[in-house]
Deep mutational scan, measured.
Amino acid sequence: VTTYKLVINGKTLKGETTTKAVDAETAEKAFKQYANDNGVDAVWTYDDATKTFTVTEMV
């Protein structure tokens, strides 16, 4: 189990959160659900070296 981080650069929601998951795909599903629940529709990137997902909402 690995800890993954999500950085949110949204128009109305900004911040960071983490989740523990067995792999990046599982973490991504959890983070996308979190973003969807909070109304963030954005572009996703992932950095495997830092285990960090970044979501940037387009203006």
Rank of each mutant, 00 (worst) to 15 (best):
V1E: 13
V1Q: 11
V1A: 08
T2V: 11
T2Y: 14
T3Q: 08
T3N: 05
T3D: 07
K5M: 06
K5Y: 15
K5G: 01
L6C: 09
L6W: 03
L6D: 02
L6I: 03
L6K: 01
L6M: 09
V7C: 07
V7E: 03
V7Y: 05
I8P: 00
I8C: 13
I8N: 01
I8L: 08
N9Y: 13
N9T: 08
N9Q: 09
N9W: 13
G10D: 04
G10H: 09
K11F: 10
T12W: 14
T12A: 08
L13A: 07
L13K: 09
L13G: 10
L13M: 12
K14S: 10
G15F: 15
G15T: 14
G15P: 05
G15W: 15
G15K: 13
G15D: 08
E16T: 13
T17K: 12
T17I: 15
T18Y: 14
T18K: 05
T18W: 13
K20V: 14
K20S: 12
K20P: 04
K20F: 11
A21E: 03
V22L: 10
V22A: 11
D23Q: 02
E25S: 10
E25C: 12
E25A: 13
T26P: 01
A27Y: 01
E28A: 12
K29M: 10
F31I: 02
F31Q: 00
K32H: 07
Q33R: 10
Q33W: 05
A35I: 15
A35M: 15
A35R: 06
N36I: 14
N36Q: 14
N38C: 15
G39R: 05
V40L: 14
V40K: 06
D41E: 10
D41S: 09
D41K: 10
A42E: 04
A42T: 08
A42H: 08
V43Y: 10
V43T: 10
W44E: 00
W44P: 01
T45N: 07
T45Y: 08
T45V: 09
T45F: 09
Y46R: 00
Y46N: 00
Y46A: 00
Y46K: 00
D47Y: 02
D47P: 00
D48A: 11
D48Y: 05
D48G: 06
A49R: 09
A49V: 11
A49N: 09
A49I: 09
T50G: 02
T52N: 01
T52H: 00
T52W: 00
F53S: 00
F53G: 00
F53V: 01
T54V: 06
T54Q: 04
V55L: 11
V55G: 04
V55A: 15
V55K: 03
T56P: 02
E57C: 12
M58P: 10
V59P: 13
V59M: 11
